[in-house]
Design a protein around this nucleic acid. Structure first.
Length: 285
DNA sequence: TCCCAGGCTCTCT
DNA sequence: AGAGAGCATGGG
């Protein structure tokens, strides 16, 4: 494992020393995932818990020590990858700060410093696609509520919580059931995407192996999926960090901080990370 | 109350 | 190609 070291394993918690910038709070509160919530635990400076890949997990943090409530095997096989712990964010942050932007360099540096510690999660592909279809013209608290209810009603029980329902399960539940989750006009989009994925007409694994342009085209062929939802899906679920989702907040950022134009290409393969820094900075500060 | 939210589709120029 | 209305709902 690169850039982190397992230091101990006791009482169900795994202690992992992290090299480079890492913040549990920022990572799970920056709007990239919807199934984790902060916990109050005197043991840690910060803790979040939630469900991913059908497993309940908690992440605590004290300084550069990450505490994972899981076995060593799950950490190595799932959570290490989920959290992008192999990625050298220290170097990436430097590259982002040095990106050849035409203007707004000062803001870019400030946003990078303020957001440092965010890790782009590698989430489940279907969960990312479905979640970001739900996200359109919606606000984050409400998105979380809808997804939580969707999991409670249609996801497998994981213990205290529920897994994210797979595509077939949502397809079988029917459009009306999905509408009854208060998804509104998105119900037919969710149901249609679930059908396409469940029946193999939309193969998410194949899409993840495509180049960015083809992958975006493939996702956008689904009704209710446009450039922004596709970009978020590819960034947060398909590990395509060159994706640069532009929502109403990012439009604001570009107008206000970059004088109306910002070419994602200046960030190369780290465009998605830069985007997330700018988004987080604008929303939360 | 009213504006808005990690937008997209459809229609009309 | 580009602009604009409509969409369901509820958070703040």
């Amino acid at each position: 494992m690169k850039n982190c070291t397992i230091e101990y394993n006791e009482n169900g918690w795994l202690g992992v020393r992290i090299k480079g910038p890492f913040s549990v709070m920022k990572t799970f509160d920056c709007g990239q995932c919807f199934r984790f919530d902060p916990e109050k635990n005197p043991m840690f400076e910060n803790e979040v818990s939630g469900v991913a890949f059908g497993r309940e997990v908690s992440f605590g943090q004290n300084g550069d020590l990450l505490m994972v409530r899981s076995g060593e095997e799950d950490f190595i096989n799932i959570w290490h990858d989920f959290l992008s712990l192999d990625v050298d964010y220290e170097t990436i942050n430097k590259e982002i700060k040095n990106a050849p932007v035409k203007c707004g360099k000062e803001h870019l540096e400030k946003a990078t410093d303020l957001s440092s510690g965010i890790r782009i999660l590698r989430q489940d592909k279907w969960e990312a696609l479905c979640s970001f279809i739900i996200s359109q013209n919606n606000n984050i608290p409400r998105i979380k509520k809808i997804i939580s209810e969707m999991c409670r009603l249609y996801g497998d029980k994981t213990g205290a919580g529920y897994a994210f329902p797979d595509a077939k399960r949502l397809y079988d539940a029917g459009e009306e059931a999905i509408f009854n989750l208060r998804t509104g006009f998105r119900a037919k989009y969710i149901h249609g995407a679930a059908k396409a994925v469940a029946e193999g007409e939309c193969n998410l694994v194949k899409i993840s192996e495509m180049n960015y342009e083809d992958a975006e085209k493939a996702l956008c062929s689904l009704k209710g999926v446009g450039p922004k939802v596709a970009a978020c899906t590819l960034l947060f679920g398909f590990n395509k960090t060159e994706a640069f989702p532009i929502d109403v907040w990012m439009k604001k950022v570009i107008d206000l901080r970059f004088n109306g134009s910002l070419d994602p290409k200046v960030f190369g393969d780290h465009a998605g990370i830069a985007q997330q820094y700018l988004f987080y900075c604008e929303r939360y500060l």
